[in-house]
Nucleic acid binder design. Sequence first.
DNA 1: GGTTATCCTACCTTCCCGGTAGGAATGCTT
DNA 2: AAGCATTCCTACCGGGAAGGTAGGATAACC
Lengths: 151, 151
Amino acid sequence: MMFSTKAEYGVRVMAHLAACDGSQPVALGAIAEAEGLPLAYLEHLVQRLRRAELVDSRRGAHGGYSLSRPAGAISMAEVVAALEGEIAPVECISADPDGSLVCSRERDGGASGPCPTKLLWTRVQGSIVRTLEEMTLSDLIPETTTKRVSV
Amino acid sequence: MMFSTKAEYGVRVMAHLAACDGSQPVALGAIAEAEGLPLAYLEHLVQRLRRAELVDSRRGAHGGYSLSRPAGAISMAEVVAALEGEIAPVECISADPDGSLVCSRERDGGASGPCPTKLLWTRVQGSIVRTLEEMTLSDLIPETTTKRVSV
DNA sequence: GGTTATCCTACCTTCCCGGTAGGAATGCTT
DNA sequence: AAGCATTCCTACCGGGAAGGTAGGATAACC
């Protein structure tokens, strides 16, 4: 298992929101009950989604959460990144904008060339990120479930 | 970080073996020292590789490990699977040859259709497995390091 | 004002990762 | 045969994170 339940649960919440009519916010309690997940735990996850500006929140009675954008405009890469953090298969590949972190293999001044395993992990990372970016929330909700209001 | 150091270290060991002349086994202690990794820990990992029949072992003096097959015939998918176990991004996708495990969303008799998030995770899994299967150990070792004996 | 909900912080518990330890088995070498 | 090098096996352990709980503060609606 490579992703934690943060991603698993969080994606479900997003899918649930996408499946609902977005005209009014959905209370997290309703989602928790429908999905059979602990409310208190979902609260943590949805906060991440909110800070990433993927959902809007309304407090108070009849409050809840709603997608900040149409489902088709929210890539799964954004969702997973918000929940799980940076997408990197191994520490070797962990983001270093400044390139400070090199595989321990590269410490020796690069005489032996770059870490031979780096190629593998960058490719794996690339393929994961690419497939996540190719999908949006709207790809998760079957047509029948989508609001057919405007039909 | 999605893969543990088991995969990271184990792949390094395999890459090291692939880079060495395979005519005689390499002691794990030498690899541990060269890669700067704890020997006692590598022993665990290399046992997994051995049980998966990816490496051959020879005990006693001048013993060690060697690839069981030419590097080009060992896919990285095999290596990672041996080290990390089944490749599944989330529990939802965890292998059930018999299909017994369904997402909790699918418990309700499937009235609401299959778990909407399943599509996402199966695609992610597919892309990971595919890229791992496309690469072999020989892709990790630069030409210069490869034995140019038979040239 | 009371109710409904989000928001925030702190805590707790269980699991597994990364690593250690110690020895038994095996095979060279002398 | 003795000794050494190395794999093999089992057990153990400490720390950290994941998964989850608790309690209250804040905000909006009625």
